[in-house]
Structure formats: structure tokens, C-alpha cells
């Protein structure tokens, strides 16, 4: 109550940045109409991380494509900051599972791409690019081409490029899916530090439950049969999180809980 009183009247109390209201998405194929999402509603608050876990084909990538604006819903409303999504925009940066770093640009040029292509004057971002290069450990390879980098480093470029464009929202679709276990863990550690410092809303899709619990403030569990029956799990661990959290008993309990939700649904089908 006292919090609300101190709030200036012109600022909305509602901190929901991303919202899906009764969203249904169907695709028509030669063999009939497929319902990928039916009547989904969800909200993500400013500065929070939502992880979505589920088997392939449960519609998690479709949710991401609806928010990024690459797809539009068959029915229902997708809103960003209270405004209806009409198409892709630079307020939402996407990190894909596949390598989307531009191979013809150097690491630095990749990071500069977003602000440059949007016509932002150089003095507004020149320093920022250097900061991000430093933050993600790419300073020494700033003038290298992506082909000279390992898979993990290329993913760093991809993530740094998304952050350097200063979006409100980051949408990541299994970005670490193709990395080896060691690299993946390092990337998770770096991402949690970066997302904690930046206070951006992040939606992170994965099929790795451990990754979801480690990165998320909330985990959305999706299943294929029955479609989209889901559970929201609040992850109580304080941020910034240390990689050792993964060894704590509470972490393991939560991981098992989500695992159970996933398996239960699939067994009952």
C-alpha cells in the first residue's frame, strides 16, 4: 500500500512487459489443421526470466515466434508493454538455436550491426560495443571473423549482439542446445550474470530442466499430450546465482518436481 502511494501517478503499477491473452495458434497442413497452442495465457514481468521446458512439438518455439512477431496468433492477443505485437521489432532480440552470427562481418561488426542498421548515431553506441566485447570475453578476437571462433564463442557473439542492440526483451530458443556440457555451463554462468546486471526480460526455451531451473525466475512446463497442459513453477533462489547452486538439495528437489510433471503427462497419454 505504502509502495503504491509513493509511485508517481503517471507510472503504471503493472510491471507486466510481455503478455499472452487466450492465444491459440493453428497451422493448416495438407493433412488437416494442427493446433499447436490452445488458449494460452501468460505474463512476464520486467526484468524477469521465464524458462519454458517441454518436449519437442509442444509449441514452445511457437510461443517465442508469436512474441518475436515472426508469427501472428490465430486468435487471442500478444502484447508487449501493453501494445499489440504487429511484427518483428528491435525491442525484442532473438537468439536462435542455429548459428545466426553473420559470417561476413567481424565480431565487432556483428555487435555494431543492430545500432548501425537502425541509424543510431555512432557516438551513442561506440563505447557500449567495447563494454560488451569486454563483458563476454571477446575483446581479443574483436577483429576476427566468426569462422575463426569455436561454437561456444560464436554463441557469445550472438548473445552479445542481441544485448548490444539494447532491447527490452531477449528471446532465446535453445541457444546452448548444440554446445558441449562444459561450454554450456560456462555460457549459463555468463548469461545469468549478464541478465542480472542488465535487468531485461528474458524468455529462454530449453529441453534441459536443470538449465531452466538454474536460469529462470519462473519455469513454465509444457507437454505435448494433452497439448499445452502446463504448470508454472516459481524458482525461489536469489540472484545472482552461483553455478554451485546446481548441487544444492533444494535445486535437485525442484528439478525432480518438474521432471515428474513432464513424465506424468507423457505416461498418461
Amino acid at each position: 500500500m505504502s509502495d503504491q502511494l509513493r509511485m508517481p501517478s503517471n507510472v503504471s503499477v503493472d510491471q507486466t512487459l510481455i503478455s499472452l491473452e487466450n492465444v491459440t495458434k493453428t497451422f493448416s497442413t495438407p493433412s488437416g489443421t494442427i493446433t499447436v497452442l490452445s488458449n494460452i495465457s501468460l505474463g512476464v514481468q520486467r526484468g524477469k526470466t521465464l524458462c519454458i521446458v517441454g518436449p519437442s512439438g509442444c509449441g514452445k518455439t511457437t510461443i517465442l515466434n508469436l512474441i518475436s512477431g515472426f508469427l501472428s496468433p490465430t486468435s487471442g492477443i500478444v502484447k508487449i508493454n501493453g501494445r499489440r505485437v504487429k511484427g518483428p521489432g528491435s525491442d525484442r532480440a532473438v537468439v536462435f538455436q542455429r548459428d545466426s552470427v553473420f559470417p561476413w562481418l567481424t565480431v565487432r561488426q556483428n555487435l555494431e550491426y543492430g545500432p548501425k542498421v537502425r541509424g543510431v548515431p555512432r557516438q551513442q553506441w561506440a563505447k557500449r560495443i567495447d563494454e560488451y566485447l569486454e563483458k563476454v570475453g571477446l575483446k581479443d578476437v574483436a577483429n576476427h571473423f566468426p569462422k575463426q571462433l569455436s561454437g561456444g564463442m560464436r554463441k557469445r557473439v550472438d548473445i552479445a549482439r542481441a544485448y548490444a542492440n539494447q532491447p527490452d526483451i531477449l528471446l532465446m530458443d535453445e541457444p546452448f542446445g548444440s554446445l558441449d556440457v562444459m561450454t554450456k555451463e560456462l555460457m549459463q554462468k555468463d548469461l545469468i550474470e549478464l541478465s542480472y546486471k542488465e535487468q531485461k526480460s528474458l524468455i529462454f526455451i530449453t529441453h534441459d530442466i536443470e538449465e531452466a531451473v538454474f536460469l529462470g525466475d519462473e519455469v513454465l512446463v509444457m507437454t505435448r499430450r494433452p497439448p499445452n497442459v502446463r504448470k508454472r513453477v516459481d524458482v525461489p533462489f536469489a540472484k545472482p546465482r552461483n553455478i554451485n547452486l546446481k548441487l544444492e538439495p533444494e535445486f535437485q528437489v525442484m528439478r525432480r518436481e518438474i521432471d515428474a510433471v513432464l513424465k506424468e503427462r507423457d505416461l498418461s497419454a
Binding site: S68, F70, P88, G89, S90, R92, A93, V94, F96, R98, D99, S100, F102, Y113, G114, V117, R118, R161, A162, N165
Partner: peptide
Amino acid sequence: PVFVQAARSLGASETK
């Protein structure tokens, strides 16, 4: 297409 999608989500216009 992943390059085109990435550019679009970084704010590039169709001509760009």
C-alpha cells in the same frame, strides 16, 4: 533464412 530473421529482429528494414 536465419540470417534474415536475425537482421529483422535487430531492426533492419526490408531494403537494409
